[in-house]
Amino acid sequence: MAAAELSPLLVDPTRLSIVSLLAATEWAEFGLVRESVGMSDSALSKQVTTLSKPGYIEVRKGYVGKRPRTWLSLSDTGRSALQAHIAALHQIVEQARQTGQARRVDTDEPAT
């Protein structure tokens, strides 16, 4: 299990969506990610640039026939950051559950 640590970049739901989608793939075409996340080309490019800077996402460009293609993939750094982020999210949910249970127990105890 990865150490629980929230990644400030992945707190943003859009970036989390992109990284989660790429986590389930070895690579994905830019077009697939754009359609899945429901963004415009320019908005996705901007987010990809943001995620590429710390090395979360790797970008490869090439041609298939005469058509240019861009493939995105999650790097090992990105995968580790996502695992740590998921672990931290679990901690938050679990803590809230435990607090909720403790409160219920306190309320259920009869007054002396």
């Binding site: 929230l6 400030p8 707190v11 943003d12 739901p13 989390l16 969506s17 989660s20 989608l21 790429l22 986590a23 389930a24 793939t25 994905a28 899945s36 996502l82 998921i86 999210l89 679990h90 938050i92 949910v93 803590q95 809230a96 559950r97």
Partner: peptide, 25 residues
């Protein structure tokens, strides 16, 4: 979303991660 997500936001984010994996598949 604030820098520290609330439990509801965290649960929503975890659901989002599962949905995106399903979308990729």
């Amino acid at each position: 979303m604030a820098s520290q997500p609330t439990p509801q936001e965290a649960a929503e984010a975890l659901r989002n991660i599962d949905q995106r994996a399903e979308q990729a598949r």
